[in-house]
Amino acid sequence: MSALHIKKGSTSHSAYELRDPNGEIIEKHTLAVLVENEPGVLARVIGLFSGRGYNIESLTVAEVDHLGHRSRITIVTTGTPNVIEQIKAQLGRIVPVHEVHDLTVEGQSVERELAMFKVAGTGDKRIEALRLAEIFRANVVDSTLESFVFEMTGTSEKIDAFAELMRPLGLIEQARTGVAALSRGPK
């Protein structure tokens, strides 16, 4: 059996199928993951995403049931529909994970993010920043003669919009929590 004479660089050099990753629709989903609050559980979730090449757009985690030792991890992720399904199945397989909910498909949900912005400036820019903050219902939580720290809660899009407006007005630093989300309705 002689050589197959396969062109250099051809995917036939690999036993793995080399696929075009841009060929499919990418969706954004918000997942709520209820986990046992034990050491390392966040590392397991993050390790799953990095190890299998999934995306994390944002991730928040906090204990939500002190007595029951439960934490809630809210993950905003992107991927093809198949990848999203795979992410949910893989999350469900982690031993300390109790529940996985895809808030994007399980009915309507509300999503909020908290952000803080430090805006420094004087004169017209300072006045304009304060005026826009009022429009956006951002609160002033710290002020000096040449700076404000605004605090606001809203959807990620609203916070993005506010950040864009503050940029030319002296935005020097911002901190964001990432998305927290709950499904709408009584259940």
């Binding site: 059996m1 197959l4 051809s10 995917t11 036939s12 690999s14 036993a15 793995y16």
Partner: peptide, 20 residues
């Protein structure tokens, strides 16, 4: 000696290489 049959990389099942 080579090990056959062999599905060469990137080929479907019906394109197997067989031994001489």
């Amino acid at each position: 000696e080579n090990c056959f049959p062999m599905i060469p990389s990137g080929k479907p099942h019906n394109e197997m290489l067989l031994g001489d």
